[in-house]
Computed example of a mutant assay.
Amino acid sequence: MLKIGLQLYTLREELEQDFEGTLRKVAELGYSGVEFYHFFGRTAEEVSALLQETGLVPLGAHRPYDAMLNDTEQEISFNLAIGNRNLIVPYLTEEQRNWEEAVKGLRIIGEKCNAQGAVLSYHNHDFEFTEQFGGRTVFDGIFEEVPAELLQVEMDTCWVYYGGYDPVEYIRKYAGRLPIIHLKDMRKREDGSAETVVLGEGEVNLAAILEAADAAGAEWAVVEQDYCSRSPLESVADSLKWIKAYANQGGKVHV
């Protein structure tokens, strides 16, 4: 049964103003875990104490590719100290998208994570589906070139959809290598760009995604809304309400 977490990037402005208070609010809303993207200068001891106080599970952390490549030991040790084993490369800039080089870098990072009992994952956007690498989508190319023991999949299902592919099919394809999915909803603006919205207010088939993720052995479904048209805290609260309604209809999520 899927556990429900929140990618804290959604609440970046709130965290910058009040890191501790915002995490306490996330726990009060009923999220089981959090995925970090920044620690706002807090020490591992401070973060660990806050997690213990709130009961939130540190399910993962998005860390910049350059930091993961150049300061690997520091990144791993900090995250292990707060109880997080999942280190995730969240994004590659256009300058970093030499895919042969990126694959080499991910292998190096993955080996270092492996050696210390941490797990490296890669989180996609839409360009991994619209660009090619060796006659395949970049997404498939990365995960074919780097073995599963060195790199796991953190699939952002909304960006798979926006990239023109069926997220349910991709979840099935990567079953067993997919500990975390990002659950995100969107609708297309008139110019074709994506507007991220509260769960259930867009066009993504979220119920089918959750069902497929549970069947594929995923542990966490992580709510994320890149940009919110109303209060981000209100938005993540409403997204959790949608998940609870899904659970009440027999959906396999733990809330």
Rank of each mutant, 00 (worst) to 15 (best):
G83D: 12
V26P: 00
E111A: 14
G141Q: 07
E195C: 13
Y37N: 14
T72F: 02
L151A: 11
K112W: 05
I209S: 06
L206F: 04
C228R: 04
A207C: 05
G110H: 01
H123L: 06
L87Y: 01
G5Q: 01
W99F: 14
V153P: 00
Y165H: 14
C158P: 01
A245N: 12
L59E: 12
A49D: 11
E46R: 03
I209E: 07
K25L: 05
L106D: 04
H182I: 06
Y170D: 13
V204F: 00
L206S: 04
E128K: 06
R97G: 05
V89C: 14
A207F: 01
D66T: 14
K188S: 12
L92E: 03
R177W: 11
E16W: 00
A212T: 08
N86V: 01
F36W: 10
F40S: 10
G5T: 02
I108Y: 08
L2F: 07
D71E: 15
D191Q: 13
E16Q: 14
T137F: 05
S77F: 02
A212I: 03
A212M: 09
Q52C: 09
R136V: 09
D140H: 14
A212P: 03
V197L: 12
L87H: 03
A148P: 00
A245G: 06
N248Y: 07
V204K: 00
V236C: 04
V168E: 01
G21A: 06
F39D: 12
R136F: 11
A208K: 08
Y9M: 09
Y9P: 02
V34I: 15
Y165F: 15
Y122C: 02
F129L: 14
D238M: 12
Q152E: 12
P147V: 07
I108K: 10
F133I: 10
M155T: 07
G110Y: 01
A237M: 09
R187V: 13
F78T: 08
E145C: 11
A207L: 08
L56H: 03
W242C: 02
R63C: 04
L15E: 08
F129E: 12
T43L: 01
L210A: 01
E144S: 14
L15H: 05
F78C: 07
W220E: 02
G110P: 09
E234W: 09
N84R: 07
H123M: 06
A237L: 07
S48K: 15
E211Q: 14
C228L: 01
S239L: 01
A148L: 07
D18W: 10
K244E: 08
H38V: 11
W220Y: 11
S77E: 15
V103W: 00
G60I: 07
E219H: 02
K104G: 14
I109P: 00
